[in-house]
Every structure is written in structure tokens, then in C-alpha cells.
């Protein structure tokens, strides 16, 4: 599975980076979402995957070996939630920008870089 995961990571990064270079702001946001998926998959994969037992202790407080490493999971969980907060803001920012500028063409939004 590692091979597939590595390919998926590459694919998600490619798609994310490609979308970020688009002119439409929605696509850029989608690109950001893809990038955070990619990063999460990356953490998950290089944190070493273990098929089978989740990181739960049984009644006696013991664990079934082999179990998956809980730390990358916790990191990803935090990252997902943070990512959600930030993306929600970005989406609404898009909405407001669209309302104000009347387009989501980023090439139309470069007033702040002009004198």
C-alpha cells in the first residue's frame, strides 16, 4: 500500500499545486484544500501505517500489537480541524471578494500592487 499512498501523495500535490496556479479564486481554494489533504496523507504515510488495530487499549489497559501510531493521527486531527477553520474563512473571503469585485478572476484583483 505504501506505493499506492506515495503515488496518491504525489497526485494530490500535483493537483493541489496546479489548482493553486489558476486564475479563479475558487480553484485556488480547492487547491489549498487538496494541499492540506496531501499534507495529511503525507504525515499519515511517513508516520508509518499499520494495518489493523487502532490505538485503543482494552479493558485492562493493554494494547494489541501491532497497533498504529496514535501520534501522527493526533497531529492530522489537529491539522484537519485547523485547516477547516482556515478554509471556512477563505471560502467566505471568496464570497465577499466576489460580491465586491463582481468576478472571481484573480487577474482583476491586483489593484493593491499597482500605484
Amino acid at each position: 500500500m505504501n506505493l499506492l499512498l506515495v503515488i496518491i501523495i504525489g497526485l494530490l500535490y500535483t493537483a493541489g499545486l496546479y489548482m493553486m496556479m489558476r486564475r479563479s479564486f475558487v480553484k485556488v481554494i480547492i487547491g489549498l484544500i487538496l494541499l492540506s489533504h496531501a499534507a495529511n496523507m503525507l504525515i499519515f504515510t511517513v508516520g508509518r501505517i499499520t494495518k489493523g488495530n487502532p490505538a485503543f487499549l482494552n479493558k485492562d489497559g493493554a494494547i494489541f500489537e501491532p497497533f498504529s501510531d496514535p501520534l501522527p493521527q493526533a497531529l492530522i486531527l489537529t491539522a484537519i480541524v485547523i485547516g477547516f477553520g482556515v478554509q471556512a474563512f477563505a471560502i467566505v473571503l471568496f464570497k465577499r471578494a466576489y460580491q465586491t469585485a463582481g468576478t472571481d478572476d484573480l487577474d482583476e484583483m491586483k489593484k493593491t500592487d499597482e500605484d
Binding site: 485556488v28 499534507a39 503525507l42 504525515i43 511517513v46 497531529l75 471578494a97 489593484k111
Partner: peptide, 29 residues
């Protein structure tokens, strides 16, 4: 102008965060 500035600020900083996060993951790996 605030919104336009914010779009660039937000996007580029999130790109940075994505790289940072990947770096952290790799370090743990």
C-alpha cells in the same frame, strides 16, 4: 483593497503552512 490584499496574504501564507506541515510530518517520519 483590503479584500484583495487579504486574498494574496491568505493564499500565500496558507501555501507556506502546507509546506510547514509537510515538513513537520517528514521530520516525525
Amino acid at each position: 483593497e483590503q479584500l484583495e490584499g487579504a486574498i494574496k496574504y491568505v493564499t500565500l501564507n496558507l501555501l507556506s503552512s502546507a509546506l510547514f506541515l509537510a515538513g513537520v510530518g517528514i521530520l516525525y517520519g
